[in-house]
Amino acid sequence: MTNGASPHKETNLWQSVLDRLKLWSRKHSPWLIHFNSGSCNGCDIEILATLTPRYDAERFGVQLHGSPRHADILICTGPVTRQARERLLRTYEQMPNPKYVIAVGACAITGGTFAGCYNVIGHIDEVIPVDVYVPGCPPRPEAIIDALVILLQKMSTNGPKIEEAVS
């Protein structure tokens, strides 16, 4: 898994300048793809609210894209159902490297209210690696923007993988 920024090897000046340029561009142009693997739609509505003019996520260069091939960040909601597991994996694998994942909502973190249902396999990070968790049922758009900012900060440090965005 090539998560995180490329490690800073001070091989030569040119390389380090290029690395910095890449990192800068990555931090200023996070493109999202939104995937619902079985949520109740509450979290999805909050994600859409984050992208509306009121919160204006385009300030950070955020754009919602339809194709996983265009996206850098998979923003997913809900527990993973049996049906959705394979689709979630496939969507994740279709994204070009480097890719990041944000899990939004209590269900995405623990299975939440759906934990233990006959059709639910588990939570998101049992299927794909998650970079930032956003608790809440559903979390407010401010919390989701905060999670994005945390993720962008995380790109520059190869910090610990699991970090929590507290709303």
Binding site: L21, K22, W24, S25, R26, H28, S29, G61, D72, P96, N97, P98
Partner: peptide, 10 residues
């Protein structure tokens, strides 16, 4: 930023 990022991506 968009262009540089896309060029640097896989």
């Amino acid at each position: 930023a968009d262009t540089v990022k896309l060029l640097a991506n896989e």
